[in-house]
Every structure is written in C-alpha cells, then in structure tokens.
Design a protein around this nucleic acid. Sequence first.
DNA 1: GCCGTTTTCGGCCCGACTGTTTTCAGTCG
Length: 623
Amino acid sequence: MPLLSNAELARIFYEIADLLEIKGELVYKAVAYRRVADAIERSPVEVARAYREHRPPRLVGVGAAIAEKLEELADTGRLAYLERLRGEVPRTLLELLAVPGVGPRTVHTLHERLGIADLDDLRRAAEAGALRSVRGMTERTEQAILAGIAGLARMPTRMRLGQAARLVEKVAEALASTPGLVRLEAAGSFRRRVPTIGDIDLLAASGDPRALADRFVALASVEKVLAHGPHKSAVQLNEGRQVDLMIAPPGSYGSFLVHFTGSKAHNVRLRAIARERGWSLSEHGFVRLGPDGEPLTGEAAETRTFPDEESVYGFLDLPWIEPELREDRGEIEAAMAARGADGRLPKDPGRGALPTLIQVADLRGDCHVHSDWSDGVHAIEVMAEAARQRGYSWIVLTDHSVGLGIARGLDVERVLAQREVLRALNARYQREETEGRAPEVTPRDGFRVLHGVELEIRADATLDFDDALLASFDVVVASLHQGRRQSARQLTERVLAAIHSPHVDIIAHPSGRMLTGRDELPLEWEIVYAEAARTGTLLEINGSDNRLDLDDERARRARDMGCRLVISSDAHRIAELDFVAYGVDMARRGWIGAGEVINTGSRDELLAWVAAKPDRVLRRGAA
DNA sequence: GCCGTTTTCGGCCCGACTGTTTTCAGTCG
C-alpha cells in the first residue's frame, strides 16, 4: 500500500471540509478539518509514514476523531468516512464553489431546492431563469452566475512572481499621481514572495480615499469592477487578473499592512496573542476587550493604532517579522524568543530566534549563466559585462553539454574553443583592473569569468563528459533534463551518480519542476539531501521565475540536513541575471542566511570549496 | 471537530462589500 504524501492527505481533509459545508453541517466542523489540512501541508514530517509506524506527530487541531481518520488513511490509503460523504454529496457539487459569488450555502440551497448537481445544471437553470424562484436570488443573480461560469473557462492560472511584479508596477504607476496619495505598495502573497500569485493585493494610504478608489476602478486596463467602496475596491483587468485595493488611514497603516500581507495562518496567530493580552486585533488596530471577551464600549472604549508594522508587532512584544517568514512555520515562536523573562520586549530588542536572512546585495557572483554558444541569447562578453556592471566578482559560464542536443550543447572541441575565448577575456579584465580602467563597481578581487558547464545527467545515469574533461573545468553544474518519466528510484540514482562524482560541484534545479506545467521529479529527497551534505555537493536554488527550484521548503530542509546552497539565475539573456532576486526570495522564505549560500563568498572561497570535493567523496570509504 | 490560567461546554479571527434582506446572510480575503 503506497504511502499518501502530506499534500494528498491535505487534499483529502480540504475535500471533507468542503463536503461538510455543502452538506450544511456546523461551519466550525469544516473549519476544524481545514485547520488540520493546513497543519499537515506545512508539517516537516511525513505524516502518513509516522502514523503507520505508530509514532504520530503532535499536530495542532488533531483530536481523537481526526487521529483515527489519519490512522486509517496511513494504513489503507482510504477513508470510509470520506467515501460515505461523497455518496451523500455529489462530487460535482464541489466544482460549483469555483464560481465567483457561489459559496457552500448557495450550493447547498441550489442542490436542495432545484436538484442542481453540476456546472451544466447550474448554467441551464440560470439560462432558463429558474434560479429566481429561490428566495434571495433574482435575475441579476442569474446573470452574475452565467458570467462567472463563462469566466471559469478562461480563468488564468496563477501568476509567476515576475508577471505579478510587472502588473504591480503598471497599476502603481497609473495611480501614482492621484491627489492625496501618501503611500502605495503590494501586500498579500506577492509581498511574502510566494512562488505563484493568485491575485494582487494593493494597500494605499491616502488623505482622499474616495478619489483613489474612483481612479482605480476607472483605470483603462480594468475590464470589470468587482467591488467599489471607500475602504476596499476590486477589479478584474482585461487580461483576467484580479487586483484588490485597500485604502488605510495613514495613522493605522501598520495594522493594515500586517493584515493584508498575511498569511492568514500568521494573522490568526497574532490575533490569538492579542486576545490573550486582552485586545482584539483587526486591520484597524487593537481594541480593548472586556472580561466578557467583547470590545469595551462607551467611556471604557480603548483603541490603539500604529502607522508602521514594527509598532504593531512591538505592541505584542514581538520584534518585526520579515514578510517572507509569515507563514506560521515557526516564526511566531522564534520572535517570542526575543522577549525577556518578564514576557516583555526589552528596550533594545534583538531578533529572538529569527534568522538573519540573506539579501540580494550579499551575492558576489552567479554560478549558472548561459551564452549564445548553447541556448542563450547574448554573447559571452555581453553576459559577462552585464554581470561586471552589477558589481559581481565572477560568473561561471555554464553552457549545456553535448547530450542536450536541443540546446545546442557543446562537444569537447567547442568546450576547448570556449575556454580560449575566456582566457582572452579574463586577460583583458586583468589588464583593465591593473590599469584602473575597470568599472567602478568592480570588487577588490576583480572580475573573472570562470569556465563551467551545465552537464547533462544522461538517462542511463552516466555523465555527459569523461572525468579528465570534467576535471579541467573550474566549476561543474550537473542537471537532468531527459528521461523524466523514470521511477523515483531510477531518478534518485541518477542524481546520486552526479553527487558521487568527484567533479560535480552543483546540482542545478534539483526538482526539475516548471511552474508552467511540469511537475516535480519524484526524488527520494532525504537521501539526496543527506548525500549532498556529506559530499559537499551544492544544491542550487534556481531563480528563474518559472522554476524557483529548490523551492523555499526544500531549501530549508536541505539546509537543516547540512547542505550548502547556491543561488543562481540560469540567465539566458542579460535581463535574466536579475532572476537571482527570486532565488533570494525562496531562500528568505526558507529561513536561509548569507552564510549558508556559497555565492555570497569570494571567488577564492568558491574555488577552494570546489577543489576540496574529491577529498570529501573519497572520505566515503573511510567513514 | 477541537480545546481549556475562561477545562468537560460553549466558544472558535475579523471586517468590507454586495444584494435585496427592510436588519442581515453570504461571500471573500
């Protein structure tokens, strides 16, 4: 019986929650199941395996009833309770929840009253004007539902970070000159740098909210106005994306920003802390609660508002928490560690157990860059010059090896020819540095292009070049593009073959995922991390906004297992050198500091690390 | 369904917007 993954378990509990809600059960029952689904999804342990081995982890929200269900799922992969629910509530009803404006209560009513069981039924009923027979529904409701169903078909998938960034910039620019505007920025999952973004949440502070909201809904790119109020408006742009605009008074901007940055799980924790201390927290700030747990009114009423986030966290005796960490993955506990023995934040508070996160400015080079020698767009000198202008101390040129024919991979002769080009280029850099003609940003140790390769790990687990040639590169980056359909065992063996080579220094985009529709490879991750850590093989956080691989959680786990990481752009053109910023985003979401990433060090440090690999591999036998 | 320096019941995070409800429920984030 194959083991269910945490993601699969979470899906099951989310489905139970939806089914219960449609059934009309107590909403808190559904809430309880969703909370557990959340907890499982973010759990670092394999929940099903742990249950099967009779050492269930402590998960918040799991009581006797749900523990029993987890046991059943772990042992049999099935759940009688879910199957019974599915029998009572047609599964196709769940699809109706995707229609905007249709929630569980509406689905319940439509099913009870009109026998509507799927999207087709709903469309036919709306077209026939049958919905208005239900209390609370009119012809307008029918039109809205039809429009919603039509919209589902051309619903765009989630945005990549890069797409979201362009959209934010566009809207912000169009609103920038609005009278009264004090401040405007993106909050939500975009600010937390989640790999993919559903819709954009903008937060503004303005002296004239009405004017700002009016301007927002009248933007040329707006197709449809979804909501239009003085505090909150929402639009759908013509490319299908939704943008929400919240408008805060400047004096309470801090709590608004916390609230709309989320995550929801993080906010729930903050509100619980506030409540323990006798305050209710919302986007508007803190409201004093009476002994009955209700806000005090009249004379006794008391509120606290803050213009910045630091003060909001400070009021709860917490240091400010970076947006990237706000996922309730331990950041609250880490922040609480900054409190003194009296439970208060000291005068000059430290960061508690919060990590000092890496920043883009910490990077001193890029270990994964292509040129027009393989599938890149720009010439070597052009890529190199762009990198030099960024103030880097090096790039590693990593054109593909011959096995990746589709990318015009280099054979031995072209590798050697390319090396001559680099020799001449580096000689030129050295002359310029000696003569003081190098760009001002050039670091003290100068700028060099190191010779590397993106080495194909072949389908039969052999490497594309022989050891002698591999040994002649400064840095070898190995990756796997072909034979993706093999079993987890085979794929893992191929990655391990690269890790165990004394010449392979970096595993690039280890999971092989593409956010635009290519799933992760099913690797045996714990083994990969352990062997990478033992041999000192670096694991890449690929910053291409379509890859983001390793992602935040894998990077964190790898680091915890002792791996060192490298953040690379995988640039195929000069503009893509900026992709490292998204890689840094993933690292920050993974609680990673500059010291755990090799390309924050000097060129010498990188080369020394690489040179030591054969020893580390050899030590294997001795261990 | 879960949980308890508000523990075995009665809560469960909080508020804006919409539509049609003449006082509020449903949806959404």
